[in-house]
């Protein structure tokens, strides 16, 4: 899923400062699962904003609303009738959702309440960690199912570097060395000999380096 973390209140308040009627718009996909921008977090943020504004003696009228997804037109359409009654939209979706809402309502100021952080997993309740950087050219079959692009701090294709110590990354001891994991997994699979296979210099053109990307499925297009 896409994992995010909420922006500091001060930053959010500065964005919406000129407005008195706003929609706090949640998303029921990834950001709900990582507890940052779902229906409940919409309620919490709205309550905070109202309390804060009341203290300052300023009015605020908030519509709390959550969409099934903010990355599909049909769901974003559900608020069209409401939008005219408000001054701004504060989206709690990932960066994709925020932008898609903005594209749908070009006349409305749309603000992000969340920092989109990474594509990751729920490692434990309350702990999300990164797994994928969407490089567009998966090599997990070569590296024991563990991604060197996202799990190695330097994205080394032929790691580990000399900074790997006690299975931890040189960047800090909280980070597990991705290459240590790869080697352990290859060992478990009885494929440690694969470690010596040279992985050639990567074609990054499929990654963000190649510019904004798109996927077209002609068979599905109408």
């Amino acid at each position: 899923m896409i994992v995010g973390s909420r922006k500091p209140m001060e930053e959010i308040e500065a964005m919406i400062d000129p407005f008195e009627r706003i929609i706090v718009l949640g998303c029921r996909e990834c950001v709900t699962v990582c507890s940052v921008g779902g229906e409940k977090e919409v309620g919490i943020l709205a309550a905070e904003l109202r309390l804060s504004r009341k203290q300052k003696g300023r009015a605020i009228d908030i519509l709390e609303f959550s969409l099934e997804r903010q990355c599909d037109h049909e769901y974003i359409e559900q608020i069209r009738t409401q939008v005219a009654n408000y001054d701004a939209i504060l989206s709690m979706a990932c960066g994709a959702g925020v932008q898609f809402v903005a594209e749908s309502y070009p006349e409305m100021p749309v603000f992000p309440a969340v920092n989109t952080t990474f594509i990751g997993v729920t490692e434990e309740q309350g702990l999300w960690t990164e797994r994928c950087q969407a490089c567009g050219n998966c090599i997990l079959h070569l590296t024991g199912g563990i991604c060197p692009v996202s799990r190695c701090s330097k994205s080394l294709m032929n790691g580990p570097c000399g900074g790997s110590s006690d299975g931890k990354c040189e960047v800090n001891k909280e980070i597990v060395c991705g290459w240590q994991l790869i080697i352990e997994r290859l060992k478990q699979l009885g494929q440690l000999d694969k470690y010596e296979e040279y992985i050639p210099i990567k074609d990054w053109s499929s990654s963000r380096a190649g510019g904004p990307r798109k996927v077209v499925r002609e068979d599905l297009r109408i």
């Binding site: 330097k154 080394l156 570097c161 040189e170 800090n172 040279y198 050639p200």
Partner: peptide
């Protein structure tokens, strides 16, 4: 490959790592 930029005087920098040290040898 070089030390990670977090150790240096510009920890906010974006690193490159277009290739690694072994790929550099090869190149």
């Amino acid at each position: 490959s070089g030390d990670h930029q977090v150790f240096g005087d510009h920890p906010k920098a974006k690193n490159v790592y277009d290739m690694d040290s072994i790929q550099l040898i090869h190149s």
